[in-house]
Amino acid sequence: MADDIHTLAGPYALGALTDDAEREAFEDHLAQCAFCAEEIDGLLATSAVLGRAVALPPPPDLRARVLGEIADTPQEQAAHPVRRARRLPRPATLLAAACLVVALAAGAVAVRTQQRLSQETARAQAIAAVLSAPDARTVTGRMSSGGTLTVTSSAARKSAVIAPSGLPALPSTKTYELWTMSGSGVRPAGTVQPGSAPVVTSLPAGHDRIGVTVEPAGGSPRPTTTPLAVLTL
């Protein structure tokens, strides 16, 4: 993995990579890097808006020709069932861990103070520990309010990495709060804002779901609103 492959997310979303080989290399990277996979979802939705912005009325006879053609066109078999959750193959989790650390180190950390820097490094290491765990698995879910939640968890490490993306903005009096949930209880797992970096949380025994709610700024000890998403790990 080239150290700067993350930066190809922009050109990829704009259809501006050099050739098919480079595109396929980046698509392989997407399958391994939760960070870029999250980002590309939002960037492709964004480039689609650039396309919609130049819409024109189509030629009227085009519709009949397309419908005529598909009547004679067999459909390809799905390569895989549509995934709501996927398990990363082993070698990929190591790459993903390396990739996240690189991304965090390259981006968020660059201009912080020494103290913040060591906090960020500790967090990056905690994230890497989860992502590289032998039993790491990743699930992704859409939030009913918009945005997605990607959670990579490891029972062995008793931890989960929660990466929100595309969160709609909230008034300053509110925050998004994350929760770990078991059959018998709910525990707060930190608050996040739109654009927040991934959060690492401990995963007590029996806690097998991650939820997100909107709470008063600063967070609540218990959820007070209906969850926007609940992901089963």
Binding site: G15, A37, I40, D41, G42, L43, L44, A45, T46, S47, A48, G51, R52, P58, L62, R65, V66, E69, I70, T73, P74, Q75, E76, Q77, A78, A79, V82, R83, T140, T148
Partner: peptide, 28 residues
């Protein structure tokens, strides 16, 4: 445009919603 819409028909089973949703996929 005709080729794209026929491709949408052929490859709909391969659509991955985590790539910008349906509109993201079609516009790509």
């Amino acid at each position: 445009a005709q080729e794209v819409m026929v491709e949408v028909w052929r490859k709909a089973g391969r659509y991955d919603p985590a790539r910008g949703g349906a509109m993201g996929w079609i516009m790509t």
